[in-house]
Computed example of a mutant assay.
Amino acid sequence: MHLFYTPDIEPSHPQYFLSEEESKHAVRVLRLNVGDKVQLIDGRGGLYTAEIKDAHPKRTILQITDVVTGFNKRNHYLHIAIAPTKNIERLEWFLEKATEIGIDEISLIICQRSERKEAKVDRLNKIITSAIKQSLKAYHPILNEPEPLSKLLSRSFDGQKFIAHCEESDKSNLKQDISLNGKYLILIGPEGDFSPKEIEDALHNDFKAITLGQSRLRTETAALEACFEVNFLNRE
């Protein structure tokens, strides 16, 4: 069954009008017609089943036949703050795979050693949207605009906070420290790692240093490894 992302849909409304772009895709590309069934996701946990009532290429009308709220809601909240990679395609790869595995929020942080200090959030959000459709996720991860690491460190977070870095120091791992079914914020630095001052500031703000294994990982690989570990440890 074909799936559409419809963030403006309301559960109480019996009908929904696809946007012109989505209508054209449904009618001209997918060749859908009156009576065909489709699924819709709103990015807020809603999964809808609908039937096409008018297959118009500019304004397709759907009749909602079933609504599931809280579809596949996960038992934890994962927020990864990652420094944008010099090669933006590596960050795009992380966003796609992390969305498929399971993530709730991503912050883009600018660090002292960052080689990339900007990112087109609109384009990155399209990659996330494509990934939730591919993996049938009803929740759309939040992607925050790039900001200095210092701003993120200054904000409160109601959960466990970790920083993964490469400096030689005492570190634990997520399996040892994680409280299951909780909220987690994990910092992943740029290609040149966090600076000693940034690590010190994070620890001062109650972040705990962790290791993600013995290998030296690329930024996007480290972030995905953290994402996988959190989801695996919280698997019911």
Rank of each mutant, 00 (worst) to 15 (best):
R28Y: 04
L40P: 03
T49Y: 13
L187D: 03
H56Q: 07
K24Y: 12
N231W: 12
G213K: 06
S150Y: 07
T85G: 03
I110A: 08
R90W: 04
Q214P: 08
D42R: 01
K151W: 03
P7T: 08
A98Y: 09
L62S: 03
R155P: 12
N125R: 15
N125K: 15
P11D: 11
K97P: 06
S23W: 01
H2F: 12
L32A: 04
S150N: 11
L3N: 10
G189W: 02
D66H: 14
P57Q: 00
P141A: 14
A209M: 05
K208R: 14
T99K: 10
T211V: 07
L40C: 03
A83V: 06
A209G: 15
D8M: 12
R31H: 10
K126M: 15
E21R: 11
K137I: 06
E229D: 11
P141N: 11
A83N: 02
L62F: 12
K120M: 13
L62E: 07
E89V: 08
L174E: 03
L91M: 14
F157R: 01
E21I: 08
P146D: 03
R218C: 04
L203A: 12
L18H: 00
L180E: 04
N75I: 07
D206N: 15
M1S: 11
N205P: 11
K97V: 06
P190N: 04
K137D: 04
K58N: 05
L30Q: 08
R155A: 05
E92R: 11
L187A: 04
H140T: 12
G35H: 03
G35Y: 01
V38M: 01
R218W: 04
L32Q: 01
H13V: 15
F207H: 05
F94N: 09
L95K: 05
L152V: 02
G189R: 00
I188W: 00
R59E: 08
D36S: 07
K53Y: 09
L108N: 07
E51Q: 11
K120P: 11
V34F: 06
Q112M: 09
D158A: 14
K24W: 11
S169W: 11
H204Y: 12
K133C: 12
T60C: 15
L185V: 10
A164N: 04
P141Y: 13
A98L: 05
P141Q: 10
D122S: 15
K58E: 06
I188H: 02
S156F: 08
I64E: 05
T60H: 03
Q112A: 14
I142R: 15
H79W: 13
T65E: 13
P190T: 03
E236H: 13
W93I: 12
F94I: 09
L3M: 14
H13D: 13
T69R: 15
A83E: 02
Q39T: 08
V121N: 09
D193A: 00
E236I: 13
A202M: 05
P14D: 09
R155L: 10
